[in-house]
Amino acid sequence: MRCTFLLFVVLCSVLLLGCSTGPGEKAGQYNFKQGMAETQFTFLENAPPEQIYPGSTFKIIVNVDNQAAYDVTEGIVQIIGLDEKYFSVAPLEQSFNTLAGRSLTAPEGEKTFLEFWGSAGNLFENADEYTANFFLKAHYRSTVDFADTLCINSRMYETYDAGCKVETHKSYDGQGAPLAVTELDEIIAPGDGAQAEFRLHLQNRGEGTVNQVNLGPAKLGSEELRCHFQGEADEQQFIRFDEQQEATVICTKYIGSLNSYSTTLSLSLVYDYDYQQQQSLRLVK
């Protein structure tokens, strides 16, 4: 009797623990704008085939899958580096429409397929095979939004202030895009006419390369923030990433002499992104 009761209790516990909220509710709680994610470019299986025969035709089908949390636009996919004598591919370049990023309404992101038609030439003399290496190159434009709640305190030396505490340095693991704000430094010059300076460090964490980054709207709470890229003129609202693939955005704001308060810093960036991937085709006898 006692054993049976004990078994009943264990079973109930297991059932209760195993229960959880449905996928809809879970998805609703998930923030896609975190971490690192980017648009994936992959070949479909057997397109192209592993071995291609002289004089035959084949297809190259590229699966473009947006796994980032932001839409990608102005996308172009190119096939570069094939010798027409062996492999003739048309078209060599294709564009794709806006692909939506992952969101509550499209948690899987949006994907599309691009088809390239190819035909194989002949092998050189009585060669057994020929391997052609080429690059799949993609270019697109996307955005990344940064937002975080910060403490603003122009009276840092006041003895009594029951408000928030300023965190001078914060780190982030990304905002769901290859371009990420990785660190934020908050520098406040206290006193009358207090000024807050925010330094956001940008870094490319994806497998491609970031070309140009344009500053979008930046706000501190509901007020506009003035931002510029470190090392560039204040009026210039864009920067070209170099080999280092990183940059710093500096935003400043006069905060006045107020008690400490928490507010949201938000910044939007638009960037051009290039991605290339080496692939190969094999022509066999």
């Binding site: 580096g81 010798d83 027409e84 062996y86 050189f124 190159k137």
Partner: peptide, 9 residues
């Protein structure tokens, strides 16, 4: 625009 790879005989 990018590069052209070609074989000559």
């Amino acid at each position: 625009s990018e590069y052209v790879f070609k074989e000559f005989e």
